[in-house]
């Protein structure tokens, strides 16, 4: 057994777009490379960044799978491709389905991290009729289990840590690796997502909240008001820190007039239209968590009456 003082990390890309890798490259202060070195994490392999030869990579994988080389952290980006017909051959590595390699690596890793919504819950290509038949590592949409099964525990006795987001916010990965590298526990909440990043809703911290408060709701793009009632914004029903830890350190989609598409949710990208809010009697079908519809309606009507002119001025 080769001993490693540093923690080792292997990054596997499966059915995905590389967007999570691109997103974590945007980590700032420290930058991603300094971050790994500060936490003493050795990146054994990242497909976009490593320069070892393919023969060295083959050798490395053999050693890891045989338990001769320690694997502390396995990060998986992209969903597990099961198609066609359960063969997994729509996504291969060295002629074999990549899901087989993933299964082997998951058995020897101390911690398994699902990076992004596709790896966590299935994401793109995970719906009935989608060719690739993608599933999440340990969860498929709302159902526990996924590829590894609901009883799976990593060598350290942990279930898969889900870091959804399309793409992942760099802070979500940073916060988890901060804890893992320091041997601190990662407290998981709903859907096995770490509370440290996923406890807040996207709505919290949105600069359009005052408009939301007074029901100043927009019907079209390019305005300053809230997008919850008509434009499909899922900020109040989606858990992520987009508006508390800003994207690229400067902004968020909702602040820039783009509705939250609920990309950290288990059912993203649900087949219903993105830019429309499903409603009942003019009120969103999906209300913020734990809210009583009758009280909500009463509150919204009164709030609209109380709305100050400075917020309403664009409304005819």
């Amino acid at each position: 057994m080769k001993t490693q003082k540093n923690k080792t990390l292997y990054w596997l890309q499966s059915g995905g777009c590389s967007g999570d890798s691109m997103s974590i490259l945007n980590l700032n202060s420290p930058d991603l490379f300094s971050f790994f070195s500060m936490l003493s994490i050795d990146v054994l392999w990242h497909p976009s960044l490593s320069t070892i030869t393919y023969t060295e990579h083959d050798q490395m994988l053999e050693e890891i799978v045989a338990g001769e080389r320690k694997l502390d952290i396995l990060c998986v980006e992209g969903n597990v491709v099961m198609g066609p017909d359960g063969s997994g051959m729509f996504d291969t590595f060295r002629g074999k389905p990549k899901k087989d390699l993933l299964q082997q690596l998951a058995q020897v890793a101390d911690v398994v991290v699902a990076v992004g919504t596709c790896a966590s819950f299935g994401g793109f290509g995970s719906y009935e009729g989608d060719d690739i038949a993608g599933i999440g590592l340990q969860q498929h949409h709302n159902t526990q289990g996924g590829f590894l099964g609901k009883d799976f525990h990593s060598k350290k006795g942990l279930q898969v840590i889900n870091l959804p987001g399309c793409p992942i916010h760099p802070k979500a990965l940073e916060s988890v690796l901060n804890l893992v590298a320091r041997n601190l526990p990662v407290e998981l909440g709903a859907n096995n997502t770490p509370k440290c990043y996923y406890a807040p809703t996207v709505h919290q911290g949105c600069t359009r909240n005052e408009h939301h408060e007074y029901k100043v709701e927009e019907n079209m793009f390019g305005e300053e008001g809230c997008m919850f009632f008509h434009l499909g914004c899922k900020g109040p029903t989606t858990h992520a820190s987009c508006n508390t830890h800003l994207w690229n350190d400067v902004n968020s989609k909702t602040r820039a007039g783009v509705p939250c598409f609920g990309c950290t949710n288990t059912t993203f990208p649900h087949p219903s239209p993105f830019f429309e809010t499903p409603t009942i009697a003019g009120t969103p079908l999906h209300l913020p968590e734990g809210v009583d519809r009758a009280y909500y309606l009463a509150y919204k009507d009164m709030a609209a009456e109380a709305a100050p002119q400075r917020l309403k001025k664009r409304e005819e």
Partner: peptide
């Protein structure tokens, strides 16, 4: 546009913000 990657701020007829 709010974030990079994966935003949707460019819309038919202009931009969202």
């Amino acid at each position: 546009g709010g974030q990079w990657p994966h935003t949707s701020h460019i819309v038919p007829g202009g931009i969202s913000t």
